[in-house]
Design a protein around this nucleic acid. Sequence first.
DNA 1: GTGGTCTAGACCACG
DNA 2: GTGGTCTAGACCACC
Lengths: 123, 123, 123, 123
Amino acid sequence: MEFKDNIPIYLQIEQYLYRQIVQGQLPAGTKIPSVRRLAVDLTVNVNTVQRALQQMNANGILITKRGEGNFVTEDEVLLAKTKQHLLDMELQRFTEQMRQLGVKRNHLVEILTHYLEEHIDDR
Amino acid sequence: MEFKDNIPIYLQIEQYLYRQIVQGQLPAGTKIPSVRRLAVDLTVNVNTVQRALQQMNANGILITKRGEGNFVTEDEVLLAKTKQHLLDMELQRFTEQMRQLGVKRNHLVEILTHYLEEHIDDR
Amino acid sequence: MEFKDNIPIYLQIEQYLYRQIVQGQLPAGTKIPSVRRLAVDLTVNVNTVQRALQQMNANGILITKRGEGNFVTEDEVLLAKTKQHLLDMELQRFTEQMRQLGVKRNHLVEILTHYLEEHIDDR
Amino acid sequence: MEFKDNIPIYLQIEQYLYRQIVQGQLPAGTKIPSVRRLAVDLTVNVNTVQRALQQMNANGILITKRGEGNFVTEDEVLLAKTKQHLLDMELQRFTEQMRQLGVKRNHLVEILTHYLEEHIDDR
DNA sequence: GTGGTCTAGACCACG
DNA sequence: GTGGTCTAGACCACC
């Protein structure tokens, strides 16, 4: 995994884990790798991983069991809400940015379609 | 104008001016307000404004004339390119984020349409 | 280190570091002194050093690792290119200036040789 | 005539006139165009031209005759000295820069020759 | 008046 | 401890 330079690494890790969970690669109830394991895998400092997990813990998306590790919450409702929230954030940001760039609402879909056609090979 | 806390102010100013130019509120060749004027209007330090302009100057979108001020480039091609680039950046970001959230490409338009309908009142 | 008065200090620092890197005194991958350290050594303000490094960072010749420091890129190709570019810049400037002073191309080498002989003691 | 952005215009004008004189396009004793004329031709401010001439005047290379205009000095010795000085400045700068870039003295001619061959078409 | 540079000092984010 | 940002205030160069 590679990190962009202008965004804090811990945020990128957090985001990365969110994606994994939301997509189901880390299903509800799963134990996620240990902090040290993640730190090694991602070649970052342990503190950095800690900080990422800490915040997800506060949000309730991760449950820490002392001596056992971190687990994805089994609260399916929360998971669904989280996913929806992430989607909405992106949609809101996107529409807002496009608006600021002078794109009319009724052109949005058109532009998106056009873009998708042009980049049809991108995964 | 208000600034978000997690993004450097100078970047937000830069973005703000880019928007203004791309939308045509600052047409090609226009003199933009002096650094000191902008600093007062935006209630930030002169240096912070400088830094924003400096980058745009390096990109050629602004032309600095010594002792006169900063002017929007008259290179219409560059302006068009810049606009397209800004649009593409957002589109790329959007589609990439949605992909990471597990949204299939052929669902993208559908989701966007749905979102727009739900938030029909937003300007 | 002393600075000339008519050239911005940050540019002179940049140039100084470029020289160091190109000559191999700061080999690829090396950690360069911290901004604060450099500021003290060169008896200039921290911001001034920052500004110099910032540009080199943008050019890819320096890599900034958050909380760790600045490192010379390990991209040997880029380093070679940079060196060649610096050389070419000087050669171009030199030949152009001599041309403007009315020196014919086929006299250039002759004049240079003559100059070198006259100043044979200069290091 | 076009001006580089990072060098004061008045210096570029001064340099330009020096070149003209040294190359003989403005021979000893010639009246140079009036300040206003130059300002129009070069599309710069009158003050800027003044400043350039003023310095050349102080150096004795230009003679101001009140009510008549500015003339190139007729002091051929001074002219020759000036030319030599300009040449030496460039040679010194060039050799010094190359030295800082790690080029050995005995490689200088070789590199220059090589460069000239590569750019054989440049005027 | 315009932009450009520099300083001193502060606070924050990161690892 | 590292780099990044921001401020307030100063001085300079240019037109």
